[in-house]
């Protein structure tokens, strides 16, 4: 039995009188790829915002790696090992490709701002380490992000590669759990297929546990991964919770 990496316990989220998430139970085990499906407005992105600390749940608890992360600042949650991508791409378009990834590596480095100004030898070494880490993370994406020069601005990337870069940036925070918000949105079937393979590779070779929102999951669920397909096919909880038919999860 794999360890529970993420667990939501009867989590509710209301904006004023609007109940977006209602007593949701959900867990993601280490090494799993779990898909979240549901129609528009079902609260899928809200779920991600709850897990990453943008919103604090009005009720319930969120436990990550055995520790409650409810009400924690987003950057601290990231440090604990949760990283995400965005449905509507939020790259730092004012920075280069590699700088985007390096900025995310900031989370787990020690250097303070004043040491950074003094450019001590230790600092320079760390700066070099971060660049190496960023290059390594980008290299995971093979030719796709290699074809571009890493020192080009992020806005010069194609749409599909921006999606890939967002995933690369998320992995630079050294996460255990990756939250991917509609990673194939707006992509053509070939690109969607590539992203599906990439997600499998992220788990198998990268060792990440993955929670993915996929709008039309049911169409190409098989391609994403067997694990996720089985999960969705055999476990009614996810479907139920997100289709909003029933509030409480049942086993």
């Amino acid at each position: 039995m794999a360890e529970k990496l993420l667990e939501l316990k009867r989590v509710s989220m209301a904006f004023g009188g609007l109940h977006v998430v209602n007593e949701l139970d959900l867990h993601v085990d280490e090494g799993e790829i779990v898909s979240v499906i549901g129609p528009n407005g079902a609260g899928k992105t809200t779920l991600f915002n709850l897990i990453t600390g943008v919103y604090e749940p009005t009720e319930g608890d969120i436990v990550f790696a055995g520790r409650s992360i409810k009400g924690m600042d987003p950057h601290k949650i990231t440090k604990l090992g949760i990283a995400r991508t965005f449905q509507t791409l939020r790259l730092f378009l004012n920075m280069t490709v590699i700088e985007n990834v390096m900025a995310a590596a900031f989370a787990h480095t020690r250097a303070g701002a004043f040491r950074a100004m003094l450019r001590t030898p230790g600092m320079r070494r760390e700066e070099g380490e971060i660049r190496n880490l960023a290059e390594e993370r980008l290299a995971f994406f093979g030719q796709r992000l290699m074809g571009y020069r890493w020192n080009q601005p992020a806005y010069s990337l194609s749409y599909a590669n921006r999606r890939r870069l967002e995933i690369a940036r998320a992995t630079a925070t050294n996460p255990r759990l990756l939250l991917l918000d509609e990673p194939a949105a707006g992509m053509n079937p070939t690109e969607t297929h590539e992203i599906s393979e990439l997600i499998g590779k992220l788990r198998d070779e990268g060792g990440y546990t993955i929670l993915v929102i996929e709008h039309d999951m049911l169409d190409h669920g098989v391609k994403i991964s067997e694990g996720s397909f089985e999960y969705v096919a055999t476990d009614e909880r996810v479907v139920e919770a997100y289709l909003g038919t029933k509030a409480t999860a049942t086993k």
Binding site: P74, H75, T78, A83, F86, L91, A104, R169, A172
Partner: peptide, 8 residues
């Protein structure tokens, strides 16, 4: 917000 979620 995105920066915060990249651990900054």
């Amino acid at each position: 917000e995105a920066a915060a979620m990249m651990g900054i």
